[in-house]
Structure formats: structure tokens, C-alpha cells
Computed example of a mutant assay.
Amino acid sequence: MHDLIVNMLPLREEERDRFLQSAPAVRQVFTGDPAERDAPSWSQHLPEDVLEEATVVIGNPPVDLIRRCPNLRWMQTWSAGFEEYAAPGVLPESAMISNATGAYGQAVGEHMFAMMWALMKRLPAYAVQQTHEQWLDAGRVLSPEGGTALVIGTGDIGRHFARLARGVGMRTLGVRRKAARSLPEIDEMHGFDDLPELLPRADVVAMVVPSTPQTRHLLDREALAALSPHAIIVNAGRGDAIDTGALAEALHGGRIWGAGLDVTDPEPLPKGHALWSEPRCLITPHIAGSNHLASVSDAIIAIALENERRYVSGEKLHNARR
């Protein structure tokens, strides 16, 4: 069976030409809307008439549609997350999956860094005061200089955050599965088994882990209790890495300084949840990794283009997840 590549990226004409040149002997169908190229999110358009024939899909179509691609050999997501497509029964067993890891480090790392600063300087409290036309001192603040950042998950995003943290005088502790592998942005590298001993040392806990049985409630009630009262948590990985109820209790009781959440569990956070009204919590709606930063879109497209070249050449894919 011949390949059919269905490309859902919102490519400009010159970008589309580069994909055609990278696989000149392969039929390619482009379904993305170029008008969305600079939009914060992209449409997920996978036409019904290509489902049976598609062997490659570049994009993030709805799971119910991708299930109906029986001849799929490779899927390239435009997200770092890929778990829903790797679930049993979604793709043919032999199909490969690769993702866009490497595209989001700057955007998400900077978002986490901004959340850290905002909480340290009580900026959310002043923003609320402004809406009420109040001129009040919100109290003492924190500085990152001389502090310790515990980065749980030291991939592209975690490394970028660590680099920024070191730039303002913080010491960085990293946690990853393969603790023997050192990184220039991390002063000390540890395995997950060391987490109980590391939490009391942390002034900032930056979490960028995927959703797995091993990472669920990594910060549970016991772990939160180990943190110092001036500790700040920033999570831009997956919401279920934190016990949301225990976090709400810790914040309400003043047992930690604050939390910045770009992800929650459940997501979206339901109306009436305690975290919405918690003054120590800063929440953004899972937008840190969206395409708000132009370099993110450019990197997603570059990763997909290089992997298309590798696919047609029979080379190993970048970011292969299975």
C-alpha cells in the first residue's frame, strides 16, 4: 500500500512547499488553514474521505477519528502530550508515534518562571486590589536569589526553567528517572526515590511530569506537609501530579506560600472549587504550551518536517514514543 500523508498543520505556502519537497514521491493532503498559522490554537480537521487510506497523520485529530484509520503507520503530534493516542486500541499496534517535544521549552519554562515571580511578589493580590480600586500594602515578599529550585521532570521545559532560575541566583535540584545523567542546568541530579529528602530543601517546586501511574499525586498530602511555609509550587505538566484537594487545604491553611497552576485535576477546574477563590493560588487555563509564542509554531513545524524526511528515508524518528 502506498503512503498517504495527511498534514493538519496550518502551513504557509512556502512551508507547504518544503513538506512536498521532503517527500516528493508520496501523496500528501494538507488540511490545515493557513489563516490560523499565528492563532493560539489550531483546528483539528481530519476529513472523513482520507481515514481509510491515511498511513501518516501530522496533527492532533480527535481520538474517535484517528481510531478509524486502520492503515496508519505513523502519527506525529503537534503537542508534547501523546498519551491519549497511545492508549490501547486507538492506533494500529504497529503504528509509530512521535511528538513535538523540544518546541515548548521556552514558552512553558518562561510561563512557569513568570508565575514564580508573580507569587513571590504578591502580584495576584495587587491585581485583585486594582479591580476594587484599593491602595493597600499586601505584605512581605520573597526573592529567588540564594534560594533552591526543585525541578521535577528535567526534559526540555524543566531545563529551560532551571536555566532561568540559575540566572537569578537559585540553586537547582533535578529529579528524573535516570539520575545518573547530569545536565548543565542542574546543580544536583536525583532520582524520584530521593524526593522526600529534597522537598524540605525547596523554595520553589517546578513540576513538569507526564500523567502516569507513577506520577499521580506525586505531591500528595504527606509531600506537601514536607515543604517549608515559604515554598512555592508551579505546575505546568499534568494536573494529576498534585493532590488538588490536599493542595487547596495547604494553601488555605497557610502551610505553603503559594501555587501557580497551568494544569489542574480535574481540568477545567469546576466552578465553585476552592482553588478559584484561593488568594495564594494563580491559575491559567492550560495555555503555557499554546502557540502564543511565535517560536513555538515554528519549532512544531520544523520538528514535523524533519520527521517526515526521516520517515520517507527509513531513518529513526525524533521524539519517537513508540
Rank of each mutant, 00 (worst) to 15 (best):
I287W: 04
E36L: 09
S297A: 15
L20T: 11
M207E: 05
G146S: 05
V204P: 02
G314C: 07
T101I: 09
R163I: 00
E306S: 10
P268C: 13
W135T: 05
V296H: 09
H273Y: 05
L198Y: 08
Q130N: 03
R27M: 09
R12W: 13
A304Y: 09
G174D: 13
F19C: 06
L317A: 12
A23P: 03
A127I: 07
V151G: 00
T101S: 15
L275P: 01
A231W: 06
L251H: 00
A241H: 11
Y126E: 10
S313N: 15
D265Y: 15
A80L: 01
G32V: 02
A39Q: 02
A162F: 00
H2R: 15
L164N: 01
P24H: 14
I5T: 10
E188F: 13
E14W: 10
R122C: 10
S228N: 13
A103V: 11
I58R: 04
N60R: 03
M8A: 01
A54N: 13
M75A: 05
Q76K: 08
D240N: 15
K178P: 02
L46V: 12
H252D: 04
V26P: 04
V234Q: 01
R67M: 08
A54C: 04
N99Y: 07
S41L: 15
G102R: 08
R37H: 14
A294W: 12
I301W: 03
G32D: 01
R310C: 01
E110H: 04
C69G: 11
L224H: 08
G239H: 12
W276A: 13
I5Q: 07
L293Q: 12
D3Q: 15
A206H: 11
A225C: 03
Q28I: 12
D187T: 07
K178T: 12
G239I: 05
R280Q: 09
W78R: 14
P88F: 09
H230F: 07
L72V: 08
V29W: 05
